[in-house]
Design a protein around this nucleic acid. Sequence first.
DNA 1: TATTGTTATACTCTATAACTATA
DNA 2: TATAGTTATAGAGTATAACAATA
Lengths: 154, 154
Amino acid sequence: MKQGSALKALVGYQVQRAHLIMEADARAALTSFDLSPAKLTAMILIRENPGSDQTALGKALSVNRSSAMKLINILAERKLVERRPGRDLRANALHLLPEGEALVAAMLEATRQSDARMTARMTADEVRTLHALLRKLGPNAARRKSAVKRDDKG
Amino acid sequence: MKQGSALKALVGYQVQRAHLIMEADARAALTSFDLSPAKLTAMILIRENPGSDQTALGKALSVNRSSAMKLINILAERKLVERRPGRDLRANALHLLPEGEALVAAMLEATRQSDARMTARMTADEVRTLHALLRKLGPNAARRKSAVKRDDKG
DNA sequence: TATTGTTATACTCTATAACTATA
DNA sequence: TATAGTTATAGAGTATAACAATA
């Protein structure tokens, strides 16, 4: 089916196509772990930032507190992540448990293989360039705070 | 919150981040039309491939027949797209109606502005390079057909 | 037998709103 | 008042499975 020049000219569309292809492959690579790429990301973020609370994790994942909760519930049920007493009586401190560490290592390896598969047609230099350009996407600095105040990610 | 080198090193993760940022901006740019970026994509595909059936559209969108149906139902209800008799008595031929054409034009303009905003920090050359590299993502040619046969996108 | 559209159903992910406890 | 967690509820998007009509 033809895309036409309208779609081809949009960077956002090309990024979305690339995301679709890569996410599907990464998800397939993780089926045996029964955890989505997003949950792997959450575990890695907890590993890199031990003691963070759920709200902070949600912000890093671009989801709100309620969605972050559900995510943590699943990881906690599977004994991959633990809620410990936090900086005050309200907050939880999230920590990756040993079983979680092991799982992250194995999942990361599978994900790296998927990544390598998807960049097989590119040179190492091209991959580096792609990385740099992807980081350059986004609004032109300027205003960083939303004017609206709601109970979510802002 | 730190990402750590594990996430930063994954192209798939960077693509996902980029997608998240760009999709959110594009979606915001389309709120007044009450149609998602994905529905704009569907309309563009129908415009570029008039007479296609729902199954083909679904394939192009990477969704199955059932999901494509729901999409078309919404667009048909709003008189943006029409189902006409197809190549045989089973298939529908999809066509973009005049009102749909007008809406696509307006939405595309809004989307292009969003796109420009998100690439504001890049030169025209860099945008071209990014396009080319994104197209290079994906499995190394080889096998294109799934071995499994199911009632979906394969 | 295979394909197209369709319907019913369910699952995942996420959001909103309200509530509790704490600050 | 504001913040962290929680719960209930709802919505979007998509998938699976089955069926009828047609090929």
